[in-house]
Amino acid sequence: MNTVDAYLDEMFNGLADTGSNGRRTLAETEDHLRAAVADGIARGLPEERAEREAVARFGPPGAVTGPVRRAEQSARLVAAGTRLRGQLPNALSGAWLLAGLWLVLLGASYGVGGLGLAVVHRAHPRPPCVSCSDAGQIVHERGVAAGVFLALGLLLLAVRWLAVRQTRFAPAPRSWPMVAAAAFVLIAAANVIGWPELADGLLAERGSGVEQDFVTAGVALGSAIPLAVWGLVRRRRRQP
């Protein structure tokens, strides 16, 4: 193998995974070296010496491949950033929707929990748990929590709906029902395996009872199933 071909092989290895920029650089390098060798031969140099001189003047392959690799990496970073910037409004929109749904879910679960406690208390009037003595107060607190969470959730959803409709705010990503279903399954799991303080807030400390966590988990799971089905149907519709 002659000097120029060996040099081009080394450069080819250094330009691996640099795409069209790498191919272009390699083509330009080959053209440059062949022209330089032809000039050397025209000046009366033997071919082997003309090749050695052309390669020496061109410089080490790393001096060319390094900048090409760095340029390719920055181009990829810029492209990834552009993609991310394009998807960010949709992700924000989806997160907004999810937050509204979560609050509605919490409100619904406190409503169900409070209603259940009221029915049980009416049928069997006794303290609902060891540390709680006033079931009526707990029912009242759950009712208040249900109202607050439902109102906040519905407000969030309504404002988002208006924003999407009036200001053309980005719609949620198409995959959001599946993401919401997964989030609700996680919420259900967290409530069952011990996340009562975070999930229930102050109400857990004030004696809303462990059964409220199971009610929340049940409502979350019950919401996750239709969301997942909806997501699957949307995905199937998209496929040709």
Binding site: N21, R24, T25, E28, T29, H32, A36, R57, F58, G59, P60, P61, A63, V64, P67, V68, A71
Partner: peptide, 15 residues
């Protein structure tokens, strides 16, 4: 100059 250094510079100028 090392002749190979011209090509990354030209590509940079083109970008």
């Amino acid at each position: 100059l090392p002749e190979g250094s011209v090509y990354p510079a030209l590509h940079r100028l083109e970008r």
